[in-house]
Amino acid sequence: MTYLAKSPWIIHYDASSCNGCDIEILACLTPMYDVERFGIINTGNPKHADIFVVTGSINEANREVIQNIYNQMPDPKVVVAVGICACSGGVFRECYNVAGGIDKLIPVDVYVPGCAARPESIIDGIVTAWGILEEKLKNKVSSPMVSDHDHKAHHKHAQGGAQ
């Protein structure tokens, strides 16, 4: 990659992560690793973001939040699952409130394993995502809107969750 049309901005959301991966993502922004040299900025607004970085797995409370953020991001967009919890659920996969990896809810483009994922591998993941972003831009890929209707219907039926 010698030329890029965009400086990819990322939005980070902590799903049900233990903070281990989150602080490593923050560490990527700081002088030691410094991803800002690639033009990568951590933004708080989904409408400004190109890359959605998620740590931790899906649980009952945050599935709606993840979908909202994903749907609000403009095309083209790329999702990076950081840490083993975001990839598959990790050590917490057997917990009653963990539904599994992020890919059960939104399409994931890059998986970054590790507990906690090291800053080097996070940067590697984001740079890979960047290539995919360029590809999507070139091919004018539009991402689907995700919704959780199935889950909600099931939920009503099962009467789960605290009322």
């Binding site: 649980n59 009952e60 409370a61 057997e94 009653y96 409130n97 539904a99 009467q159 789960g160 969750g161 605290a162 009322q163």
Partner: peptide
């Protein structure tokens, strides 16, 4: 009134759970 924790299973610690 039961919205402090949103859980998949109601009152999870009072039942045995197998996924």
């Amino acid at each position: 009134k039961g919205t402090f924790y949103k859980t998949t299973i109601k009152h999870p610690f009072s039942v045995t759970i197998v996924k």
